[in-house]
């Protein structure tokens, strides 16, 4: 049984890779995390087949966990009332054997403890057989987002006796599906350690299939490799450039150009221009030229040629931001955009 984790780089076509695997014969389970990805996959499937085949089930991660794995076994017993997206108050220490450790007073289950709860009540085996019963191939997009107890659950799925086609980009890890105290906290601290967790449970690591970007031009991938220390190559041979801009006139042109998105470290809403935050556009593939706004700290590091030493999550978000470019990448210091800041 082929069980595979494909390590992909930004823009290498993860979604397309999954779409290519789909057919109308096998029963496919696709789980992904972001809403953006659900949309991409859904429209991709409809484009491919001209309808949405009944043999393909597309779930967001928590819908899968809650509606497919948990509720069929325990709904009548636990009477859950939905999912609570806020994490439980860490100061209130409730023993793990109590219902209140997992559920709010009004019966909603804490999203970051759903996996933990299923382990607690011993649903693993039942869920394994349920997935095996209804599916032939299990696709996961954005594997890198699994964290906390959810990662343990993911590891448990390695025991499935069906084909596993999991795709992720370690460096696009910008948030966790859930976090709970110290559970799997250091999971993402090194690539080797991370990959080890998968090979330990018998999953083949594939770093060759999707190592070239179809989106970013060579100038951008070179920039990412050089400055962020993330190995990425490209299929693209169009000419583009990466430019650090500090000429106020050119900055104004860029800021006013609504075909160029301005990507901020955070709080992009404070600026009066077409904008977003670095990590937010994971999965987006429609942007041509982009402008990455460097905050004070990253500007310093950039100037020293040490962007790769940014805090891991920051670096990953910056990677997501830079790799959105289908065309040119502009780098602009945040302090030169003050003019556009809302009063």
């Amino acid at each position: 049984m082929d069980k595979r984790l494909i390590l992909a780089v930004a823009g290498s076509g993860k979604t397309t890779h999954i779409l290519n695997q789909l057919d109308e014969e096998n029963r496919h389970l696709i789980v992904t995390y972001t809403r953006e990805n659900i949309r991409n996959l859904k429209s991709g499937i409809e484009r491919k087949f001209n309808f949405f085949p009944g043999n393909i089930k597309l779930y967001s991660f928590f819908e899968f966990l809650y509606s497919f794995c948990y509720k069929p076994y325990r709904a009548r017993f636990d009477k859950p009332n939905g999912i609570c997206w806020d994490n439980p108050d860490p100061r209130r220490r409730i023993p793990e054997k109590n219902r209140a450790h997992y559920f709010t007073g009004d019966g909603r289950i804490f999203s970051n403890r759903l996996s933990k709860y299923m382990f607690r009540i011993g649903l693993e085996e039942a869920i394994i057989s349920r997935v095996e019963k209804y599916f032939d191939i299990f696709h996961i997009d954005e594997v890198q987002d699994f964290g906390g107890y959810d990662f343990d659950f993911l590891m448990h799925f390695s025991a499935l006796n069906i084909r596993l086609n999991w795709v992720g980009d370690f460096f696009q890890h910008t948030y966790d599906t859930s976090r709970d105290a110290n559970k799997n906290k250091s999971l993402h601290s090194s690539l080797d350690g991370y990959l080890n967790r998968f090979s330990e449970v018998g999953i083949t690591i594939d770093q060759d299939s999707l190592f070239k970007s179809r989106r970013c031009p060579k100038a951008v991938t070179d920039f990412i490799t050089e400055h962020l220390g993330i190995a990425i190559e490209t299929h693209k041979d169009t000419i583009a450039y990466v430019q650090f801009v500090d000429d106020p006139a050119q900055i104004e042109d860029i800021a006013l150009d609504n075909s160029i998105i301005k990507l901020f470290y955070r709080n992009h809403n404070e600026y009066n221009c077409y904008s977003s935050n670095w990590g937010k556009l994971k999965g987006a593939d429609h942007l041509q030229d982009i402008c990455v706004v460097l905050n004070k700290k990253s500007l310093e590091l950039y100037k020293k040629g040490k962007l790769r030493e940014s805090a891991p999550l920051t670096k990953n978000k910056l990677y997501v931001a830079c790799s959105r470019a289908n065309g040119n990448l502009y780098l602009v210091p945040e302090n030169l955009l003050l003019k556009f800041k809302k009063p």
């Binding site: 089930k57 497919f68 509720k71 069929p72 076994y73 325990r74 709904a75 009548r76 039942a126 349920r130 019963k133 209804y134």
Partner: peptide, 16 residues
Amino acid sequence: SGNADLNGDNNLLGIN
């Protein structure tokens, strides 16, 4: 019936 939406333990007998 092969339909996962129908299958589960939520019944009086508590059987799958």
